[in-house]
Design a protein around this nucleic acid. Structure first.
Lengths: 335, 335
DNA sequence: ATCGATATCGCAAACGTTTGCATCAAGCAA
DNA sequence: TTGCTTGATGCAAACGTTTGCGATATCGAT
């Protein structure tokens, strides 16, 4: 931060004007070749680097994009970040990262901070607790480019990158049915979380498709490892009547497998289990988890692709797009 | 980014000067209470937000810190990021994240980008491939605040946050010895990676302490899941003569356990295995992995604490500090 | 009435760039 | 010589702030 050399220093040292230096450095045709090389060489020599802050202020463009993410320590999300970083790096953008920790107030603060920082656009996956979307709507109405990924909100019109959660839920459940299960427990996410609702919808649809009864008591809100443990006893009571489980994510599926095994259940012989996510744990648990693959890295890339596309299209000509990633069932041993 | 209201707009609307608005908004004593409330209310009303870019440029301080990290998708590193983000959020700083993907050129580019962005300081964990540290040294000499964490470099003098890897390696190995192992294989990281060397040093020290022979052929460079698979045959040849394994990280330990089990070895009865890291996988693999705990979140927090401490101490008065986190052995079932 | 103190406020420079426009000299045609 | 074009460069405003200093008005004290 100290004694950084500026364009002004170059001008003074070479006895030319600031504007000449500026133009020379970016090959403006008005500047003679001789002064250009003179200035360029000198700049190189003293290791001149433009001040991005000043640039951003001047051109009203920061080449920075903001990211709001629920939890960084989460395989899916960190994969998403990785994909985002990779692509934006290639495109000359930087990412400012904010973690909402599933807290809507912190999420709101993050949005404000990012806007204050004049990021060119924002990538966001909603926190579980967010119920009020007015600030997002307002930002978008004001023309702030924003793309929602994974945890989106249907009521705000904008670009989106999601996967087909309904189809994922359907696929998972149908596979269980095909394997002969008829009493399938669904460990679900909170119903106001869209992805949770969709996955449940898929579960229900598969049951309907195969003319199986939908039993409310077999849909249990339970979407974390911890929750599996707290609901342990209730789960044990349910067990005798079920022969398959579709869990809303891998970690609950795995936690469930662990307590099932402790009770002596054999998987998949006694109970079949399928998860959602296909994180690295899926191949470590025994039996290896059959689960829905979720392409975090690709979704991350696609999100910034969509954002940049909008940034580079000055006019709001193109209508909002929704990219849907198809789910794939990774068949392993647990079902 | 569009029609953002500025301090100038407020001035014009209220018929006062720009400086008055600026001072009023920050409670400068020169401004009368009446104009203060007038201006503040108006600013609130039209939802004025200062332009952080302009601020940063003016005060030569961006309230932003740069992070260079090898791989985001890695439990330890994502925990570190999480801790960093949490603390810097509290302290009013933002984080710009760059991923080196274990590539020294990309790492160098990231450093330059961050400096160009005038971040107030940099947090970095070196890529595996980095051998040339001149740019870091230069940056530090120029007074750029930088703290290295985990993957540090001894030859550059700066603040550091590490864990006692030697002690970790010693602890792990000694535990194996205590359990009766005398032929212990070490799956090691590349020796130019400092943490790899230290963990190996700890391994050797434990052997020496207990008067066990150090066999070079039992130290194998193998630090990823993939490498375990490629070295599979070589490992199988080694197996008959060993009764314990200390792996440089959890994922190799787990990969090893998996191929051991495939060969019919019982763990820990036939071979004891201890890992390093204590990620979420450690409790999923069977048998649960005995491993060295690595406090990523805390190390992340401590890193920004150290950095902010230096930022807030204008003079370079305080000498460089190295924070060392003590390792803890998490005893489970694999050893 | 004069003076100094005090309270309020505005001017303008500065942070590091970019860029429209003006300037100036040289060259050339008439 | 005059006038016009062309090539090369500099001036200054602008991006949105902060801040040292000067300006003005008010007021009590002498």
């Amino acid at each position: 931060m100290k004694n950084k050399v500026t364009i002004k220093d170059i001008a003074k040292a070479l006895g030319v004007s600031i504007s000449t230096v500026s133009r020379a450095l970016k090959d403006h045709p008005d500047i003679s070749e001789s002064t250009k090389t003179l200035i360029k060489n000198f700049a190189q020599e003293i290791n001149y680097r433009p001040n991005v802050l000043a640039l951003s202020l001047r051109q009203q463009k920061s080449h920075t994009i903001g990211l709001i993410i629920p939890e960084i320590v989460h395989h899916f999300f960190s994969s998403v970040i990785s994909g985002m970083e990779d692509l934006s790096y290639r495109e000359g953008y930087n990412i400012i990262i904010c973690q909402s920790t599933e807290n809507q107030f912190r999420e709101a603060a993050a949005l404000q901070t990012l806007i204050d920082h004049r990021v060119d656009g924002i990538l966001i996956s909603l926190s579980k607790s967010t119920q009020n979307f007015s600030q997002f709507k307002k930002a978008i109405e004001e023309g702030f480019p924003m793309v929602f990924f994974d945890r989106i909100c249907e009521s705000v019109e904008t670009d989106r990158v999601i996967m087909d959660d309904t189809e994922g839920g359907r696929l998972a459940t149908e596979y269980l049915i095909d394997k002969g299960c008829s009493n399938i427990l669904h460990l679900a996410a909170s119903s106001h979380l869209l992805i949770g609702r969709y996955r449940r919808d898929g579960y229900i649809q598969a049951l309907k498709d195969h003319h199986l009864p939908i039993k409310e008591e077999l849909i249990l809100k339970c979407d974390t490892q911890e929750e599996v443990l707290t609901l342990q006893n209730h789960l044990y009571e349910l067990l005798p009547q079920i022969d398959g489980v579709f869990a809303v994510n891998d970690s609950t599926a795995i936690a469930l497998i662990q307590i099932l095994k402790k009770k002596g259940y054999r998987i998949p012989q006694d109970i079949r289990v399928v998860g959602f996510g296909d994180g690295p744990n899926a191949t470590i648990v025994e039996p290896a988890l059959t689960t829905i693959e979720q392409k975090g890295y690709d979704m991350g890339r696609e999100s910034v692709r969509l954002l940049l596309q909008r940034l580079n299209n000055p006019s709001a000509s193109i209508s909002y797009q929704t990219r849907v990633f198809p789910p794939t069932l990774k068949i392993r041993e647990s079902a």
